[in-house]
Design a protein around this nucleic acid. Structure first.
Length: 726
DNA sequence: CTCTGTTGTCATTAA
DNA sequence: GCTTAATGACAACAG
C-alpha cells in the first residue's frame, strides 16, 4: 500500500477503509473529488448486519455507533455524516496502517479482535473478517487484490476468502453471509482498501510512468471518459458520458446480471483460472448475461420465439441480415433461420442494455467495424463519422502540440473516431518527444530569453534571474509524487528561494526545467514570439556580488539601453540628492540594516523620502516580476497538464478499443455457443433442419455446458409443445 | 498610426 | 503600526 500513508491523513479515506472493512459496498463517485463522497450503491442501505459489523470495527477504535440510529435506515450519506461528526474519526494513522499492513499477503492474515462480527439477522455465525473478504481474493493467499480477479470471482460468486486464512482454521461460510450478498449482487462495486489504492496507483503504471499521480487523480475526477475497465471498479455515478456508457454500462449490466451461483460450468476452476489475458478476464463476467440473465423469462421466451420461428419456417429475414453485427462476421454468412436467430440474439442482448439507441449504434458500429477488420484493433478511418471526427480540433491541436489549447469536450458521437485519434496522438507525441530531445540543447543555448528556460551558463540573464522556476516541471512530476497542480495555488516559495539563492527572481537554477517539454513543444510549433521578447532584468536589487558584470549592462544593445534607461531614473535621483549609497543597497538591505544605514548618515527629509520610495519601488518591481513569472509558470504548468491529460486520454481510448474488441470476440464466442446449443437441441428433438444454418465458429465450448443447456431448453421446449397441444 | 508585449509604478490588501 | 509580498490596474515604451 504505497500511498495509504498519504491518504491516511484524510478522514474520508479512513471512512472508506472502514466501510470496506466492514464488508459494505462502497462506491466512490469518480466524478467527485477523491473520497469526498462515499456512497453506498443504489438501492442499498446499510443493513443492520453491516451496520453492526461496522460498529464492531468502529468499536475497536472507540467509535461507537450505538448512539446512532442502530436500527435505522442508514443511508451512506447519513452514515458518512455521522462518522464525520465524530471527533474520534481520525483513527490514528499508524494504527490503521499497521492494521492494514498486517493483512498484506506476506504478513498472513489475522482477524483483528475488534472485528468479531455478530450476525443478527444474516445468519452469519462464523467470525469473519470482512476486510479479508474484500481484500484477499484468489488462491494461495499470495495473490493480492486483483480487480479483474475480483470482478471475475465476485461475479461468479466465488469468494475464496478462506484461502487467505492460513492461520484461520475456522471454516468460512459461504452462504448465509449477509455481506457476501453485496459482493454477489454487484461485486464490482466493492471498494476495498486496496482497491482504493489501486484506483489511484494502478493507472499510474499503465502510463509509462509519465503521468503524475496527481494528474491521474485530477483527471480521473474530471474526465468523463474515465471508465473502470482497468484496475478500478468504482462505480460511475452521476453524469455519465455517452461514449463511455456504451461499454461501461454494458459491462456493468453484464456483470451485475450474472448470477453468482448460476451455471456451475461457468464457475468451474477453468473459469477461475484468472490472469491469462485480458480477453479471458472480460469474457468470464461478460459471457453469462446472455444465458442466465432472465433465463426463466426473457430468454425462454426468446427460445420459444426461435422455435416458433423454426416451426413456422418463416425465413423472411433477409432485410435484417445486414443489420446484424454477426452477419458480417466469420460465420460464413449463415442464411435464413440462423441469421434470424442471430439477429434475435443480438436484439436480445441489446435489449438487456437500457441504453439509448444512439449509444447502441455506436457500439454496434464499432463491433461491425472490428468484425470487418479483425486484425485491426481500432476502427477503420473511412467512415463518415471518422471523417467528421478528424475535423475535431483536438487532433489538430495535438499534432500542433501546442499544449495550450483548451480542454476539448469529448463528443460521444466521435467516440469511434477518437479511437483513431489514439494512435495519431501517440504518434504525434512520440514525434514530439523525439524532436524535443533533439532540439533541447539548441533551444537551451539559443533561447536568449531571460525567461531562463535556456540552460546555457553563458547566458547572462540566466543566472541572474534564474527565473522560471516553476513549481513543478513535467519531468519532475513524472518521477516524483510532487503534484504539479498542488503548486498552482502559489505554493512556490519565491521568497524563500530568493533568500536562498540571493537572486531577485528567486528561482533555483534546477527549477528551470519547468514544463520544458511542453514549453519546447509550444515554442517549436508556435515559435511563441511573445516569449522571445521576454528579457527581464531581474537583477534590479540583486547583490553586487551576484550581479552580472557591469560591462554586460553597458553593452550597447537596445535592450540594455532600455534597461539602463529605466533603471537610471532613480539612480539619477539618488545622485542628484547626494545619497551616499546605491539603490541596490536601498532595495536589498534587510530592514534592520536599512534602518541602521539610514541612521548612520544624517539625511534630510527629502533624501529619506526618496530612499524609501526607491526601496518601495524596487521591492514592488521585484514583486511584480515574481508575480508575472508566477503567472507564466502557471500557464506553462497548465500546458503540461493538458499534455499529460491528452496522453492519458489517448491511453484510455486505446484501452477502450481493446475492451470493445474483447466484447466483440466474446459475442462471437457466444454466438458459436448458441449455434452449438441449437444444433444439439435439434438433434435431440429430431428436428433436423438444414445443417447449413449451423456452422460452428469455434469449438471451444464445453460439451457439458452445452449438453446441460440443451437439455434444459429441450425440456422447456417439450413443455411448451405439450401446452400448445392442450 | 495601431497593436501587442514588456516593464515599472501605484494602490490595495493581507500576513 | 510598520514592513513586506502579492496582485490588479495603469502608463510608458519598444517593436
Amino acid at each position: 500500500m504505497p500511498d495509504l500513508k498519504k491518504y491516511l491523513t484524510e478522514g474520508l479515506i479512513q471512512v472508506a477503509i472502514l466501510l470496506s472493512l466492514a464488508g459494505m459496498r462502497v462506491d466512490v463517485d469518480p466524478y467527485l473529488p477523491p473520497f469526498s463522497e462515499i456512497i453506498l450503491g443504489p438501492n442499498s442501505a446499510l443493513t443492520r448486519t453491516q451496520f453492526h459489523n461496522l460498529g464492531n470495527i468502529l468499536d475497536g477504535y472507540n467509535l461507537h455507533p450505538k448512539s446512532a440510529d442502530l436500527d435505522g435506515f442508514f443511508t451512506a450519506r447519513r452514515l458518512l455524516n455521522w462518522v464525520r461528526s465524530l471527533d474520534r474519526l481520525q483513527v490514528p494513522a499508524a494504527e490503521l496502517e499497521a492494521w492494514l499492513v498486517h493483512r498484506e499477503p506476506d504478513n498472513g492474515v489475522s482477524i483483528p479482535a475488534q472485528v468479531g462480527l455478530l450476525e443478527e439477522g444474516g445468519g452469519l455465525e462464523d467470525v469473519e473478517e470482512p476486510s479479508e473478504l474484500s481484500m484477499r481474493l484468489g488462491s494461495g493467499g499470495e495473490v493480492g487484490y486483483d480487480m479483474a480477479e475480483d470482478q471475475t470471482l465476485g461475479a461468479l460468486g466465488h469468494m475464496p476468502r478462506s484461502l487467505d486464512h492460513p492461520d484461520d482454521d475456522e471454516p468460512i461460510k459461504e452462504d448465509g453471509d449477509g455481506l457476501s450478498f453485496f459482493w454477489e449482487q454487484e461485486p464490482q462495486q466493492n471498494v476495498h482498501q486496496e482497491q482504493l489504492e489501486n484506483a489511484r496507483t494502478q493507472p499510474l503504471s499503465l502510463f509509462n510512468e509519465e503521468e503524475d499521480e496527481f494528474m491521474v487523480d485530477s483527471w480521473r475526477n474530471s474526465n468523463p471518459f474515465h471508465n473502470q475497465m482497468f484496475g478500478e471498479d468504482l462505480q460511475l455515478s452521476g453524469v455519465r458520458d455517452d461514449a463511455s456508457l456504451s461499454i461501461e454500462e454494458c459491462l456493468h449490466l453484464i456483470d451485475s446480471n450474472f448470477p453468482s451461483e448460476g451455471d456451475p460450468e461457468l464457475t468451474g476452476p477453468d473459469v477461475q483460472n484468472v490472469g491469462e489475458h485480458a480477453l479471458s478476464e472480460f469474457q468470464r463476467p461478460l459471457m453469462p448475461p446472455l444465458l442466465p440473465e432472465q433465463e426463466s423469462t426473457t430468454l425462454e421466451q426468446q427460445w420459444q420465439d426461435v422455435l416458433a420461428i423454426m416451426e413456422s419456417q418463416d425465413m423472411d429475414t433477409a432485410e435484417t441480415i445486414g443489420d446484424s453485427p454477426f452477419s458480417n462476421s466469420d460465420s460464413d454468412r449463415n442464411t435464413g433461420l440462423m441469421e434470424n436467430f442471430i439477429h434475435q440474439d443480438v436484439s436480445l442482448y441489446q435489449a438487456t442494455l437500457p441504453r439509448s439507441t444512439e449509444a447502441q449504434n455506436s457500439i454496434t458500429m464499432e463491433e461491425t467495424g472490428c468484425i470487418k477488420n479483425n486484425s485491426m484493433p481500432n476502427i477503420n478511418l473511412d467512415t463518415s463519422s471518422n471523417a467528421e471526427a478528424f475535423e475535431d480540433s483536438d487532433i489538430i491541436d495535438l499534432l500542433l502540440a501546442t499544449g495550450a489549447s483548451l480542454p476539448i469536450p469529448i463528443d460521444p458521437l466521435l467516440e469511434e473516431a477518437m479511437l483513431d485519434e489514439t494512435e495519431l496522438m501517440d504518434l504525434a507525441l512520440e514525434e514530439l518527444s523525439q524532436v524535443q530531445s533533439e532540439e533541447q540543447n539548441p533551444m537551451d543555448s539559443d533561447s536568449g530569453l531571460s525567461l531562463e528556460y535556456g540552460q546555457s551558463p553563458a547566458s547572462p540573464s540566466r543566472s541572474e534571474s534564474s527565473s522560471s522556476s516553476s513549481s513543478s516541471s513535467c519531468s519532475s512530476s513524472l518521477s516524483s509524487p510532487n503534484p504539479s497542480l498542488m503548486h498552482l495555488g502559489g505554493s512556490v516559495d519565491y521568497t524563500h528561494i530568493k533568500e536562498e539563492d540571493g537572486a531577485v527572481g528567486g528561482y533555483m537554477p534546477e527549477q528551470t526545467k519547468m514544463c520544458q517539454s511542453s514549453f519546447l513543444e509550444a515554442r517549436q510549433f508556435h515559435q511563441l514570439p511573445w516569449l522571445e521578447h521576454i528579457g527581464h532584468d531581474h537583477t534590479y536589487n540583486q547583490h553586487q556580488s551576484q550581479r552580472k558584470p557591469p560591462e554586460d549592462l553597458s553593452e550597447e544593445t537596445p535592450k540594455n539601453r532600455v534597461l539602463d534607461h529605466l533603471s537610471s531614473r532613480d539612480e539619477k535621483r539618488t545622485r542628484l540628492m547626494d545619497i551616499p549609497f546605491s539603490n541596490e543597497r536601498i532595495v536589498n538591505l534587510p530592514v534592520d540594516e536599512f534602518n541602521r544605514l539610514l541612521a548612520k548618515y544624517h539625511l534630510n527629509e527629502a533624501q529619506l523620502t526618496l530612499i524609501r520610495d526607491i526601496r518601495r519601488r524596487g521591492k514592488n518591481k521585484m514583486a511584480a516580476q515574481n508575480c508575472r513569472r508566477r503567472k507564466l509558470d502557471v500557464l506553462l504548468e497548465l500546458e503540461c497538464n493538458v499534455d499529460s491529460l491528452r496522453r492519458l486520454r489517448a491511453k484510455l481510448l486505446r484501452e477502450k478499443s481493446e475492451i470493445l474488441r474483447s466484447i466483440r470476440e466474446m459475442k462471437q464466442h457466444l454466438n458459436s455457443l448458441y449455434q452449438e446449443v441449437y444444433e444439439r437441441l435439434s438433434e435431440e428433438q429430431g428436428l433436423l433442419y438444414s445443417d447449413n444454418n449451423f456452422t460452428l465458429q469455434q469449438d471451444s465450448t464445453s460439451p457439458v455446458t452445452s449438453q446441460r443447456r440443451s437439455d434444459s431448453h429441450s425440456r422447456r421446449k417439450l413443455n411448451k409443445r405439450q401446452k400448445h397441444k392442450k
